[in-house]
C-alpha cells in the first residue's frame, strides 16, 4: 500500500467538514483535489488518520464577480481558473498562471484552495495572490476570517490556516484602468513546478508607475514580495533601463533554496530575469 491507513468521510456540507475537522484534534486533513496531499502521503511525509473529502461542495467551486473583486471558491480547479471567462477578463495573469500548473491531468484535479493551504515553496499561486493583493477567506466553527496574502504564508508548507479551519474563498481585486499584471515562470521540465516564478502587478498613470507589486515563488522557502524592487519602480516610467536597474540584486542567494533544480546563485539570477519579463509584460498590459 502506498500510504498509511486512514479513515475516509465525504462531507456533504461545509459545517459537516468543519465539525469532523474540529473533532479530530489536528489528525484529520481536508481532501479536495488531492494533488498536493496524496503525493505527500505517499512519501509518508504526512499521515492523517481521517481524510475529509470536500470535493463535492459545489458552492465552493464557483468563480463570481463580487463588487471590485473576483471571488474564487477554494475548490475551483486549476482548469476552471484557466478557462473561466471572468478570470480571463478581469485577471488574465491568473488564468495564464493556472494554465501553466503541472499538466492537464493535474489541472483537472488540483484546486486553488488546496494549493494555497499546502503552500509548496515552488507552487505558482502563492506568487500570484501576493502580487495581486488577494485576500484568503478561512472558515471554522468559530466563524469566518480573512487574511491578506501578505500575512498568509508563514514558512515552507506553513500558513496562517489553523488546523480546524478551511479555506473557503480567495478574493482578488479586479484590474482597473491603467493596471496590468503578468506571471513569468522558469519551470522544472518534469514537474512544471516553478524553479523561479515571478508575478508582477503595476499601476500606471501618465506613463509613470504609481505602484508595483512583485512576488517571487520557487526561489525561497516561502513565496515573498520583492519590496525593494517595488520601491525602486514607484514614480518612474517602466522603461527597459528602469526595470533592469530595479530588479538588480532582487534576492540574496544566502536566503534562497539550493537543490537539484538549481543552486541559490542560479535562482538569484533567475529572479532578476523572470522579474524583468513579468514587469515588462505587466507594463505593456497596463499601458
Amino acid at each position: 500500500m502506498s500510504t498509511y491507513a486512514f479513515d475516509y468521510a465525504r462531507a456533504q456540507s461545509v459545517d459537516e467538514a468543519l465539525t469532523l475537522l474540529a473533532g479530530h484534534d489536528g489528525e484529520a486533513r481536508l481532501l479536495a483535489g488531492g494533488h498536493s496531499l496524496i503525493p505527500a502521503m505517499k512519501l509518508r511525509l504526512t499521515a492523517p488518520t481521517l481524510l475529509i473529502d470536500v470535493s463535492g461542495l459545489e458552492d465552493l467551486a464557483a468563480v463570481t464577480l463580487d463588487g471590485g473583486h473576483l471571488a474564487i471558491g477554494a475548490l475551483t480547479t486549476h482548469r476552471a481558473v484557466e478557462t473561466s471567462e471572468l478570470v480571463r477578463t478581469h485577471c488574465p495573469a491568473l488564468a495564464e498562471a493556472a494554465a501553466g500548473i503541472g499538466d492537464p491531468q493535474v489541472r483537472n484535479r488540483g484546486t486553488i484552495g488546496g494549493s494555497l493551504a499546502h503552500a509548496d515553496p515552488a507552487a505558482d499561486y502563492p506568487a500570484l495572490v501576493l502580487a495581486l493583493d488577494a485576500e484568503i477567506e478561512m472558515t471554522s466553527r468559530d466563524g469566518t476570517r480573512t487574511v491578506s496574502a501578505d500575512d498568509f504564508f508563514v514558512d515552507m508548507y506553513t500558513t496562517a490556516l489553523a488546523a480546524h479551519e478551511m479555506i473557503t474563498r480567495v478574493r482578488i481585486p479586479v484590474l482597473g484602468h491603467g493596471e496590468g499584471a503578468a506571471y513569468a515562470k522558469f519551470a522544472n521540465p518534469a514537474s512544471r513546478y516553478a524553479v523561479v516564478g515571478v508575478a508582477a502587478k503595476v499601476s500606471l498613470a501618465d506613463g509613470t508607475c504609481r505602484a508595483a507589486r512583485v512576488a517571487v515563488t520557487g526561489a525561497a522557502p516561502k513565496a515573498f514580495r520583492a519590496t525593494a524592487v517595488e520601491r525602486r519602480l514607484a514614480g518612474r516610467p517602466l522603461t527597459e533601463a528602469v526595470i533592469a536597474e530595479a530588479v538588480r540584486g532582487l534576492a540574496d542567494p544566502n536566503e534562497l533554496l539550493s537543490d537539484l533544480s538549481g543552486s541559490a546563485e542560479y535562482r538569484a539570477h533567475l529572479c532578476e530575469v523572470m522579474a524583468t519579463r513579468a514587469l515588462r509584460e505587466a507594463a505593456a498590459r497596463a499601458a
Partner: peptide
C-alpha cells in the same frame, strides 16, 4: 508520483492520473 501519465484514465469524462486518486474518491 503523478508525473509520467502512464496511469491516465477518465474520471467523469476528464483525464486524471489514477495513481493520485483514491478509489473512494
Amino acid at each position: 508520483t503523478s508525473q509520467c501519465g502512464a496511469c491516465t484514465v477518465h474520471l467523469d469524462g476528464r483525464s486524471v492520473k489514477a495513481c493520485t486518486v483514491f478509489a473512494v474518491q
